[in-house]
Design a protein around this nucleic acid. Structure first.
Length: 855
RNA sequence: GGGCCUGUAGCUCAGUUGGUUAGAGCGCCACGUUUACACCGUGGAUGUCGGGGGUUCGAGUCCCUCCGGGCCCACCA
């Protein structure tokens, strides 16, 4: 047979040994020919989340990726041809930020490319106060490329160590040419169908990164603020209106006051105008149902733009635009409007160039001086919108951006997307609610343009008119065959580079796409949508998307959206949603804590099988507690893997071949195993790996503790003994099946053991079935369980008398069901019992127990 | 303010359509140097199933209500 059984089997070294072997043998390689012969239904395609290359992998990744791998391994053993690629998400802000810190540079698109540029330092080893060196966009992108490739190597090593059964020849990067081509093709098709469009509109703007952000990337954070009571003047000379605002610095940008239509306090003002304090600008008083009578003084100041409610009022009441903040979040030089109050221009001039924070302090001072501030500002804490990756509150700035329709303004599309949500089987099912809520709560189309550098360029150019003005509505698009293109460095089709920016020429779009606009196309990228129709037809729609619950609103939703727009179908049949990792005190594991124990460190310390066992013990959608100081489940997993090695070594060590299973105990044990196989199979079919594991594991321990002990003596007998042959065959049948049941969870230990007696990888072996056990039509029901119960009685009798389990016993009398007679000999051998008398009874009870004398 | 998940032994969790005395592992205690395993084995103790109502012959399981924990969403005056 294949290998030999080592004297002292160990877990150490199995990861390296088998990862190498699987790579050499192409164990997890996607076999296209076999896939084609089996057809779509015979191929199981997995849509894998590409981790952010510049981020660090944490324990939550290991958790979720293991869940995905369990299902892939199960399906592989069921005979499915597995398409299991892996990608890296390179582009986006995290990479840019990491590159800036790692190399000490920053991107300045106005600079020319510098050949052979050497960054000031590497590995973030620069001094804290060192200025970042400005470099060209191309130099910057080159550094991004360089660093992500290094990071990705480490990621791959980790995944290989963890034992993900990925086909590493199917790796993609969201920044590589193929991904760019896919993303740009999809975008151009959206554009051609009218699903992508440009719009000049108020957008949420991050002043640090100087880019627009999308609704999906927002998060609320509690911030300190203050209510300022401020006086507006009018309509009559001696009249005033008092408003409450947290943003007095925006008074120059005020365009109206708004109160509720039913509010009797302000009804007389509707249709009239009042003057802003300090600046004396006439603004109308309007009625709108969103104004809350019980908030503040019931009348609100509308500015362009203080918050998203301002945007709604501005749009629905058709108010003018008076922007006062620039893209850097500072007060612009150009006044937002014409001021009428004496000294207003001078006041504004004092604000110019200030941050929101300083401008606010300045204006409060001015208001106090003019007497328009009533009382002291009241300090409060309130939620403020942030870019999830940013650390300054978002502002709202009117800019021209690219959007993709997402159903928020299109009932038909929204309903189709909700229907697609129904078409996907969520595991667990309630996760669909999060998708539904998100789709139902969308407040605008998807803003996909970003004013950043490292990402997929939006593949369009604009015509420049004869007088030199850029005509944004005259969009020039490339032919799909030209893709990928970079409009910033390549001329528009039909033009030459020297026509860039000149009258009658063109300009290239400078923006790149939101990172999700690329990563939501992972099924299309990995499946070769633009390059390999045969493959794409085989794998799409995929069978499984596996991901964390935190990115349902981003990755999951946008994938469904793009698939619906492009293909009119769901991107996958199943969505497996993993929970997240929580601290022992139930809080979501913080990044700092999660990083204390790196995944690599955990794998090194406990072994990959042990860590996988921990992940496999949690059901999909369930949060898992994890205490790095005391990783209980990991230790249990390690114990299981070691037990598998030792028990297998023992069970496989008995000699003999081909004997029939004749003993009732052996048959009954196999019958129980048959039930376990059926149950585990059913559980995996329902994406319930935790139940499959629990069922298998529980049986495995009973098998070791009771069955193995019971047949030990019989198995040691001479091969001529039919009882010996029965035991040996049953042991092998059982072990062969149990190893395969456990193979998805502990692929290293099971592969090691499998290799002792079998050719080929266990991971390509067929999933066990109850029929392969060749059970008789009516197996003896329950002898095994009965024997286990009898064992407990005998063991307890010895323990109570503080005897070794090996201590000989003269006579035992038990009342027990007659069935127990069938295992009498095995019981006597295990208990070292000279004489065992069984009295027929319904229940098992120890009547008499007489230990042998002496020893 | 809305939605979803969750509360079972000291800890981590099972508990299928309601059905005997509520389970497992860890931890704890006691015992055991058994020719697979001391990275071991055997046995033992441990619960107002968050509280209160209701439906039912019967409720950890179904309904109502209250309380606790977590997550997501929401128009930030």
């Amino acid at each position: 047979m294949a290998g030999s059984i080592p004297d002292k089997p160990q877990l150490e070294g199995l990861e390296a040994k088998w990862a190498q072997s699987w790579e050499t043998d192409g164990t997890y390689r996607f076999d296209r020919a076999r896939g084609l012969s089996r057809g779509s239904d015979g191929v199981f395609a997995v849509d894998t989340p590409p981790p952010t290359a510049s981020g660090s992998l944490h324990i939550g990744h290991v958790f979720s990726y293991t869940h995905m791998d369990l299902q892939a391994r199960y399906q592989r053993m069921r005979g499915q041809e597995i398409f299991y690629p892996m990608g890296w998400d390179d582009n986006g802000l995290p990479t840019e930020r990491r590159v800036q810190n790692y190399y000490g540079v920053r991107c300045d698109p106005s600079l020319p490319y510098e050949e052979g540029f050497t960054p000031p330092f590497e590995r973030g080893e620069g001094a804290k106060d060192q200025q970042q060196v400005p470099i060209s966009r191309r130099n910057f992108v080159e550094l991004c490329e360089k660093l992500t490739v290094e990071d990705e190597k480490q990621f791959e090593d980790l995944w290989r160590t963890l034992g993900l059964s990925v086909d590493w020849s199917l790796t993609y990067r969201t920044i590589d040419d193929h991904s760019q081509r896919t993303a740009q093709t999809a975008f151009l098709r959206n554009l051609a169908r009218g699903e992508a469009y440009q719009s000049d509109a108020p957008t949420l703007w991050d002043i640090t990164f100087r880019t627009a952000v999308a609704q999906a990337e927002l998060e609320d954070r509690d911030q300190p603020a203050a209510y300022h009571k401020v006086t507006f003047h009018g309509p009559a000379d001696d009249e005033t209106v008092i408003i409450v605002t947290t943003r007095p610095e925006l008074i120059p940008a005020c365009v109206a006051l708004v109160a509720h239509p039913d509010d009797t306090r302000y009804q007389h003002l509707f249709g009239k105008t009042v003057r802003t304090p300090l600046f004396g600008v006439e603004v109308p008083v309007k009625a709108h149902h969103l104004a809350q009578q019980d908030k503040g003084t019931g009348i609100a100041m509308v500015c362009t733009f203080g918050d998203v409610t301002d945007v709604i009022w501005w749009r629905e009441l058709d108010l003018p635009t008076r922007p006062m903040l620039g893209e850097d979040g500072r007060v612009s030089e150009t006044p937002p409007t014409e001021f009428n109050a004496p000294g207003a221009s001078e006041r504004y001039a004092e604000l110019v160039g200030k941050t929101v924070f300083s401008a606010k302090a300045q204006i409060v001072e001015m208001l106090a001086e003019s007497g328009d501030l009533i009382g002291e500002p009241e300090k409060i804490t309130h939620p403020v919108k942030f870019f999830e990756k940013g650390d300054k509150p978002l502002e709202i700035v009117t800019t021209r951006q690219w959007y993709i329709t997402n159903g928020s303004r299109d009932e038909d599309l929204k309903n189709r997307l909700l229907q697609r949500g129904q078409d996907v089987a969520f595991h667990p099912d309630f996760m669909r609610v999060r998708y539904d809520n998100w789709v139902g709560g969308l407040s605008g189309d998807w803003l996909i343009s970003r004013q950043r550098f490292f990402g997929v360029p939006i593949p369009v150019w604009y015509q420049v008119g004869e007088s030199g003005e850029v005509n944004r509505d005259e969009v020039i698009v490339p032919d799909e065959a030209m893709l990928p293109v970079d409009p910033a460095s390549q001329p528009a089709p039909g033009f030459t580079e020297d026509q860039r920016g000149v009258p009658g020429g063109f300009v290239g779009e400078a923006d790149i796409m939101d990172t999700w606009a690329t990563s939501c196309l992972t099924p299309q990228i990995a499946g070769g949508w633009v390059s390999d129709p045969e493959l794409f037809g085989l794998v799409f729609p995929y069978d499984l998307r596996s991901q964390g619950q935190d990115i349902i609103r981003t990755w999951l939703f946008s994938t469904v959206l793009r698939s619906e727009l492009e293909h009119g179908t769901v991107p996958w049949k199943n969505a497996g949603i993993s929970g997240f990792i929580v601290d022992p005190d139930r809080k979501k594991m913080s990044k700092s804590k999660g990083n204390v124990v790196t995944p690599q460190g955990m794998l090194d310390e406990h072994g990959s099988d042990a860590v996988r066992y921990w992940a496999a013990s949690s059901r999909l959608g369930t949060d898992a507690a994890f205490d790095p100081q005391n990783p209980k489940l990991i230790k249990i997993g390690r114990r299981l893997a070691i037990k598998v090695l030792n028990a297998s070594k023992f069970a496989y060590s008995f000699t003999g071949d081909g004997g029939e299973v004749t003993e009732p105990l052996d048959i009954d044990m196999l019958a129980r195993l048959g039930q376990v196989i059926d149950e585990a199979t059913k559980a995996y079919e329902a994406f319930d790996h935790a139940r499959a594991l629990e069922t298998t594991e529980s049986f495995f321990w009973t098998f070791c503790d009771d069955y193995l002990e019971l047949v030990k003596e019989r198995a040691y007998r001479d091969q001529a003994d039919p009882g010996q042959q029965s035991a040996v065959t049953a042991l092998r049948l059982a072990l062969d099946a149990m190893l395969r049941l456990l193979a998805p969870v502990i692929p290293f230990a099971t592969e090691e053991v499998w290799s002792w007696r079998h050719e080929g990888s266990i991971h390509q072996a067929a999933w066990p079935t109850s029929t392969e056990l060749n059970l008789p039509a009516n197996p003896h029901g329950g002898v095994f369980e009965l024997a286990s119960e009898a064992l407990v009685q005998i063991r307890r009798a010895k323990t109570d008398r503080q005897l070794s389990q090996r201590h000989p016993v003269a006579t035992v009398t038990m009342s027990a069901p007659e069935l127990l007679e069938q295992v009498k000999a095995d019981l006597m051998a295990l208990g070292h019992i000279d004489e065992l008398e069984l009295k027929p009874s319904e229940t098992i009870e120890l009547v008499e127990f007489v230990p042998a004398e002496g020893e």
